[in-house]
Design a binder for these strands. Structure first.
Lengths: 151, 151
DNA sequence: TGACGACGGTTGCATTATAAAACCAATCTG
DNA sequence: CAGATTGGTTTTATAATGCAACCGTCGTCA
């Protein structure tokens, strides 16, 4: 592949985000972390990912501040990987992906896991609003480049 | 790579979504499509993507119903690629990625493009709520597997 | 009308990322 | 203390990516 292209210098925040978490596995690992998994073996079993790839991904996720290596509470010798605040803030991305997938990638009546509020049991949704709380659709959105640069 | 792993049979909607749009370029192309780009050459220039890869990505995005090939309004001979409804519904994913990137991937004071409501000029945000509209954080979210299956 | 360039790709080739499997040291378990 | 489990690292293969060269079809302009 002669070096994968990087967008770390791009002025579009979406592009930079994809640069950081846009590869095949990272978001799946993050999803499992949201689901409470913390250990190497747990991720490996859940995802069926090759161990070398998992090892490398965990390393870069730690480097990038999305996961943090912590010692287990029970004093064990193994390593645990926990979401940082930065990682936890990926939650809306996960929800958005999930919502889209639920809508378009499942046959009618096909079962899938669901996301609910653990206190009220209600389904969780996410929507787009202007700063003052008015919901809007994509057609009203406009990307404006920064003053002195191309997006 | 001996065949990239697929999650099309997974019961987690996020996993299926990533299976469909989780590769390096697809979401970038979709982002550009949101930005109004429609032609092969426009995508190519904007992304700096290799032409063979772009060609292949456009094809799979069309196959998957995210883009649709349409004849240009001016009667020209070239092909245009427009977002379908399915593609347009990826908007929340884009906004989520953007919001995260703005927060974590830019130095303080560094300029970036912004997303605004084209009618009021207000910045656009997205947030997570229960079905009855109460905003909540990730800590209250719970993934529940479908009745008869493992997630 | 005919040469020329732009557009929209496709084809080969070099290189890298990924997957599978084997291997290994350190723990944990019985 | 023996054996299994955990958490990885090599090694080796194959597929995905990027680059550059090539090609047919239009539009254009002399």
């Amino acid at each position: 592949m002669v070096r994968r292209k990087s967008f770390s210098g791009d002025y579009c925040p979406s592009a930079r985000s994809l640069d950081v978490i846009g590869d095949w596995w990272s978001l799946l690992i993050v999803r499992d972390a949201f689901d409470g998994l913390t250990r190497f073996g747990e991720f490996q079993k859940s995802l069926g990912i090759a161990k070398n790839i998992l090892s490398q991904r965990l390393r870069t996720l730690v480097e990038r501040g999305i996961l943090a290596p912590v010692a287990p509470a029970d004093g064990g010798a193994h390593q645990e990987y926990h979401l940082t605040d930065k990682g936890r803030d990926l939650f809306p991305v996960m929800v958005a992906l999930r919502q889209w997938g639920e809508r378009y990638l499942f046959a009618p009546g096909e079962v899938h896991s669901a996301l609910i509020d653990r206190e009220t049991g209600q389904p969780i949704r996410l929507d787009i609003r202007t700063q003052d709380g008015k919901p809007i659709g994509p057609e009203r959105a406009l990307i404006v480049p920064p003053p002195e640069a191309k997006d």
